[in-house]
Design a protein around this nucleic acid. Structure first.
Lengths: 341, 341
DNA sequence: AGGAATCTTGCAAACGTTTGCAAATTGCGG
DNA sequence: CCGCAATTTGCAAACGTTTGCAAGATTCCT
């Protein structure tokens, strides 16, 4: 008669397990935690029983007692452009790498998408929840000041975004201004003289990219770069780009798109208008997302090293959790020349 | 003399707050929970103090006591192809929508990426951690059996993936077989006769898509569809696709790619070989990712409604949390004709 | 005014771990 | 066999909430 896995008394708590092993709960706790203070024989017995019953200590209780949760919060503030961004390829890829890095360090990842406009308190609420040991903010959006405020009183926070002189929160990000310069230089080297910037410069990173490009234009004695603001979500951006293109028709021969996604949309819009790229108009993107390889012609762009970014974020956060005061980390962008400029 | 915000006694616990308000902790708890049993005046006073001090109740403690956490686990098992997938566009987009839906329902999202090969216990560990009220598994990968095992003893789990007759776990997913049929029919309608399937059919979803296509080929009296297995990560897939194309040169005039990503890679490979699409070879993808619009020519594909999928996953999970026994949800795919077939 | 019915509140026991402290056990040298 | 140190264990008090129960305060009706 099969003795299956019958009558396996459910063992949910450390106390159940203790009873079975004939020891005290404290000992079980120590044994499972791998502390050295417990006798090897006892430990093995406890581990065996635990394994047999598939027991795992309750993380909530443990977290409560130890005052740490083993969870890192990752929050994506959706600024102006609510709908997009959470499915924004760049952020999502960064998130993927973050998940990898955090897992590697033994942390779990709690993801939160917030709309600051509807919830001014988003950051404090997350931090104050007691659910997370530290927080990574993906993108400053238009919340720079709020983040600065919080940074004063809360250590374990690292932000992906743009670095400004003298800011108080610890940030990891690409040198957007330099990236902007690289982009403009490339456009000019490819023969463009009348430049435009495609993207919403109220986003601080984009503003820096624009500024970098403007630096170069000025230095080279070109006309100021024309700003063509757009939303980020493809649906809205498509129309906006179309309108912009019609508006500046013939007055522009080089476009710096704030994002590969925008660049790709721009490329299709140009094609439908019969504008040859790069012959009539040079085009350059930013990010070096996978899509950059698939467009026709493949996109020249400024690459951000997303994996390095994720590694930096996690590394700095861990150091801060350990009490260290860390500086911001600014990563160098890299020009990737393909065929649009 | 500015009385700033000085001497704001730190109020971290509900007890601190109670002291300040001159009531008992229990009352504070009830007041903040919005229970009706507390006097309006008292409640307002408590809420005022709470607001002033930026107090939020500790979620860990609350979770421990209430035996629920307000967190839903989302786990992505990385099967055969470790590196990819976490940054796989499809999964990431689904994840984005999931985050939206869960937030809307007041749940937090805990993301975990696991490698079942290194950690046979991945699912039980997550569930047993006590950190989550329920779990959404994104992709069955090669873990079908393990998931089935767990489903027997654990209610609040919903899986994104393929539905098989008589399976025991609750799944939400596209009707892959039907999708495969749509794809094959389109290829044939476009004039193709000698078909190939690009993708790894050990992945269960892909196997179903292949089977659907095969159904049609057989019904139409065509030769069996040639299988061209590839990995999913672009780096490895590129080479493999190139090799496949050279191998079947001239023997194939219609390709059904398991994924838009693969289709896009295939398209570039075809271009570099001087093969005209759709004139020489018809090509169709699956998913309808953003990239499908940006390729040249734009990709004909079979669309999965990702937003509806996310909504379904969350809806079913919530119903299961409420104790309901739910059926699986199979979503209809939809043919999107663009220019490659 | 007396008493029942209704609101509000406080008390204290959970929830499942971890950990300082002290007690019990063991080992070892003399 | 004793004393002392080193190992192992158990005890019980946290961690910060929530909530059943009962007591205290109010209201209302007759």
């Amino acid at each position: 008669m099969g003795e299956d896995r019958t009558a396996r008394t459910a063992v949910r708590t450390i106390t159940d397990l203790a009873r079975l092993a004939g020891v005290s709960p404290g000992t079980v706790s120590r044994a499972l935690a791998g502390k050295s203070l417990v006798n090897t024989k006892t430990r093995e017995k406890i581990e065996a029983i635990a394994r047999e019953h598939g027991f795992r200590p309750n993380q909530m209780a443990s977290g409560l007692r130890r005052q740490k949760t083993g969870v890192i919060g990752v929050v994506i503030p959706l600024g102006h452009d609510t709908r997009q961004q959470i499915s924004d390829t760049f952020f999502m890829t960064l998130l993927g790498f973050l998940a990898d890095e955090l897992t590697l360090e033994g942390y779990d990842l709690m993801l939160r998408r917030v709309v600051p406009k509807d919830d001014a308190d988003w950051l404090d609420r997350f931090i104050g929840s007691g659910m997370i040991d530290g927080v990574i903010v993906i993108g400053q959006s238009d919340q720079f000041d709020r983040i600065e405020d919080v940074a004063d009183g809360y250590g374990p926070m690292v932000v992906w975004g743009n670095h400004a002189e003298g800011q108080r929160h610890c940030v990891v990000g690409t040198d957007n201004r330099l990236g902007g310069r690289l982009a403009a230089e490339r456009l000019i080297a490819a023969g463009a003289r009348r430049l435009a910037f495609l993207g919403d410069t109220t986003a601080i990173e984009f503003a820096a990219r624009f500024a970098g490009a403007q630096d170069v234009a000025q230095r080279m004695g070109l006309a100021p770069i024309i700003e063509l603001p757009t939303h980020l979500s493809p649906e809205r951006a498509s129309d906006e780009i179309a309108r912009h293109l019609d508006a500046v028709k013939g007055r522009v021969d080089g476009i710096f798109a704030a994002t590969d996604t925008l660049a790709a949309l721009c490329l299709t819009a140009l094609r439908t208008r019969g504008v040859a790229v790069p012959d009539d108009i040079k085009l350059i993107g930013f990010d070096d997302l996978p899509v950059a390889c698939h467009t026709v012609p493949p996109l020249t762009t400024v690459k951000q090293d997303i994996a390095a970014g994720a590694r930096g974020l996690v590394d700095l956060l861990l150091r801060r959790l350990a009490g260290e005061k860390t500086e911001s980390l600014v990563l160098p962008p890299q020009l990737v020349v393909r065929q649009t400029a």
